[in-house]
Amino acid sequence: MIQDCLFCGIVAGTVPSVKVAEDDATYAFMDINPASEGHLLVVPKRHSTDLLEISADDLAAVTLAGQRIAKVAVRALGADGVNLLNCCGADAWQTVFHFHLHVIPRYVDKERDRLGMPWVPTPGDREAIAAAGATIAEALG
């Protein structure tokens, strides 16, 4: 547990939350700034700052918990879809620096769904795409 980490405090029970689910490795709770009806977060109980730091075991546990909860949330809330979202780094909209996975039920009814993403898919430069892919593939070995 990190002393000043909001999510560590939620996991420890010293900061209030609306708990949705818990297991040995993860804790899921409702987001207090929801993008849609039923928006919740899944966090590892062990602190890790972000996607680049989290252990493979904790990442797998959070992802599997997120999938399990998403299936139930979509059915129970009558959602039309769901987004699983992780933001890694301040420039990628991360605001709490304890790894977390957003489970965001999505609705056609915009009274239930306020999430707007800034990215609109448009074709990219094929040469730049190939160059970036080659750089990443080479770095992976």
Rank of each mutant, 00 (worst) to 15 (best):
S48H: 09
K19E: 12
G133K: 07
D109W: 01
A137V: 02
D23R: 05
M117R: 09
I136Y: 01
A28C: 03
P121D: 11
A130Y: 13
A25C: 06
F99T: 13
A76H: 07
A130F: 12
E53V: 05
V15Q: 11
E127T: 13
A60H: 04
T49C: 03
I69T: 08
D50K: 13
I2P: 02
P105R: 07
L140F: 07
P34S: 02
V72L: 10
D57E: 14
I129V: 13
P123W: 09
E37V: 15
L40W: 03
I129A: 11
D109I: 01
T95D: 10
P44C: 00
P118Q: 07
L77M: 10
A128I: 01
V42L: 07
T63M: 08
A128F: 11
A12E: 08
L77H: 06
I32K: 06
Y27F: 15
C88E: 15
G116W: 13
H100Q: 07
R106W: 08
A65H: 13
Q3L: 04
L41N: 05
V62W: 03
L64G: 09
W119E: 14
H102L: 10
W93P: 05
A92C: 11
P123Y: 03
D50C: 14
A70M: 03
A139S: 07
K110L: 01
T14N: 05
A25M: 12
P44D: 09
V96Q: 00
S55E: 15
H100P: 08
A60Y: 03
D109R: 03
L84I: 10
I104E: 05
E111G: 13
G133V: 15
A79T: 07
T63W: 00
D109A: 03
K71Y: 09
L52H: 10
G124T: 04
K71E: 14
P118H: 08
H102P: 07
L115C: 14
N83Y: 07
D4H: 13
I32G: 11
W93N: 12
V42W: 10
Y27G: 01
A139L: 15
G38D: 05
V120F: 00
N83Q: 02
E37L: 13
A134Q: 15
Y107L: 09
V20Q: 09
A73D: 00
E22A: 03
D80H: 03
L51H: 02
V96Y: 00
R114C: 11
L40G: 04
M30Q: 04
G116L: 15
M117Y: 14
D91Y: 01
A56P: 06
V108C: 11
D109K: 02
G89T: 01
I104A: 05
K19F: 02
Q94G: 06
T49G: 05
T14S: 14
S55C: 05
G13I: 01
R75C: 05
I69D: 09
T14A: 09
C8F: 14
C88D: 15
A131Y: 06
V82S: 00
M117N: 09
A12M: 07
V18N: 15
P123C: 02
E111P: 01
M1F: 01
